[in-house]
Amino acid sequence: MSTYSVSSALDLAREGPRSSRIIKLGRVLRVRLVGVVASLSWLAFGMSCHWRADIGDWSRTNEVATAAFVISGLILVVALAAFWSQRAADVVQRRAPWLVLLGIVLAVWEAVTAKLGWLPLPFFPSPQAIVEVYTDDFPKLLDSVWASVKLQLGGYAIGAAVGFITGVSIGWSRAVGYWVHPLLRFIGPLPATAWLPIAFFAFPSSWSASTFLIALATGFPVTVLTWSGVASVSNAYYDVARTLGAKPSFLVFKVAIPAALPHVFVGLFMGLGASFAVLVVAEMMGVKAGLGWYLQWAQGWAAYANMYAALLVMSLLCSGAITALFRVRDRLLIWQKGVVKW
């Protein structure tokens, strides 16, 4: 029994380095291989564009094919570079599986829309139809993006600032809390969009009305979470600061606010989500510019390619805004690293 286990242990020890080297080599090869497969899948997408004649009238088929070939070539270069460069290997390992999937999806999409017509046409545009929107309708799309960003940023900044100040005041002063709290309870939970009909005639312009609505949607969660953040600061912190000679302003700005900041960011995050919804609704209902308006306009003309194109831009903008907010949080709340799980 014991001799058996000893000998098997020796076997393992003898085999260990070699088998682990083989496993490692296998892993390395697989990583490089996935890169080559990704290149092939984009090659397939490019070829699917040239497979047969388009069933519709699209002007950018050749450009899309060329772009796919170029991307396929670039992926191949990086995949080959991965045999020498560890950095390239890291990039391939991280991105390649998604690139494989994207290439396949695009190729299938191309085939079933532009080439075979299996999906009903105006509702399911082909990839080149969407690319065509970006190339041919670029100025209008850019104007819409600019209008949306301006409206969103203005409303969000006002809402966040007012919400933050209100939240700190309620959390800090009992008198302010007495007057503002009931207001908050009744007005806050109301969806900001419910104010839409009133806002559009009460404000001088649809732009100011929308700014107000976006600010309202942002302000409520920011207020409530800032308030709860300030209210939940441990008395021990105040005692410490007071025994060290802190004045009330120090207690607010150097104790209450920094301690409440993690809550504030939850509020800012929730407010951002709510404000996107209001932005799009407001642009669809009254404002004559912006991505929401563009969507509405495209629908009116049954221009579904334009709708998908605008939706894609919108999702990039929203996720970009959230990423930016998280970056700011990571910088300001660096001290939380190691305290809480991110």
């Binding site: 441990s234 021990a236 410490v240 920094p258 301690a259 001290w335 939380q336």
Partner: peptide, 11 residues
């Protein structure tokens, strides 16, 4: 005062 808990400001 030095309290029982260090109550350092975590931020």
């Amino acid at each position: 005062v030095v309290f029982q808990d260090p109550t350092l400001f975590p931020w």
